[in-house]
Design a protein around this nucleic acid. Sequence first.
DNA 1: AGTATCATGTAAGACGTTACATGATTAC
DNA 2: GTAATCATGTAACGTCTTACATGATACT
Lengths: 173, 173
Amino acid sequence: MSLRMALLTMIAAAPRSGYDIGQEFDGVLKFVWHAKPTQVYPELKRMHADGLLRELDSGPRGRTPYEITEKGLGELREWLLTSSADHSQRNETVLRSFALWVVSPGEARGFLREELEYHRARLKGMRAMKGRLDLSRPADRAALLGLQAGILRLEAVVTWAEWAIETVEAWPR
Amino acid sequence: MSLRMALLTMIAAAPRSGYDIGQEFDGVLKFVWHAKPTQVYPELKRMHADGLLRELDSGPRGRTPYEITEKGLGELREWLLTSSADHSQRNETVLRSFALWVVSPGEARGFLREELEYHRARLKGMRAMKGRLDLSRPADRAALLGLQAGILRLEAVVTWAEWAIETVEAWPR
DNA sequence: AGTATCATGTAAGACGTTACATGATTAC
DNA sequence: GTAATCATGTAACGTCTTACATGATACT
């Protein structure tokens, strides 16, 4: 039921099409929520049918942007206030690091270096995103909270990967 | 296909039953991987049928511990070396913080305080876990990598939540 | 004019959760 | 000896991914 809340969160901040949402799931939001287009489009239709969204008359190219309705805002508020967050996660980087003792130290370092590069690149992108916020908008003030969580998390991952590479150097053959 | 790799990772480190695994998914590993018992037990059976695991003769109470086979170790190594990690995640804490502008600043702070408490408690548990490692064992050396990732991540979340609470204080009504 | 990719969608199957069931063991 | 919870499991259902399809718009 939380894909629906993710979509509602994004469209509450500003109208968006299914395509726009797909781009964000591939980009900044990849560490927050993700879903494939084949899941997004039908869900948007259902939300429209349920009266949570309103269709706007076509954006650039053939896009269909949706806007949140009062009913949609109500559902979003209710979700925030009456349920608590699920903290279970899946993190393949960390899962793999638990298994690294079954490969050679050199192979382990190779994996860690790849991870380090990946997360450094994402950190750069997220910092750029933060610079583009307009903090006079309430939605952007909340987005700052989210982006800052991502930045601190990525900084932690980068620090970790650097430490892990050194640590693995010291492993006995 | 990664539930299988998560199970293989755990059982490679030391033999475990489905019940043991369930406890860990509820505890330390909650931020790494999670699965319900109803998914774990049948998967273990399938892995046994596929020759990746061997059944040991019953542990405490009626538990059935499994041990990894050579074939299982081979699959684990192949997964680590020939595929790359999926970095997409779902993080409900951050998702909710993107939506916080739709509730009152007081309600937003309430949410953030709850999150702060939760993550502080988990951080404490994870540090305790780190103290119990036996670093003469290769599997525990890899577990240290994983735990340290969790600790640094939780420290970042705690720092973030403290900052976010103060930030929301300064939001205009 | 022809190729790339944009934007949306459908259908099948894999994966994950919820609800429920059952015998076995420990605790009172 | 009754209650709690341990340990495993099955079946139905919901969510997510993969494979494929289609017309529309921009690019060269």
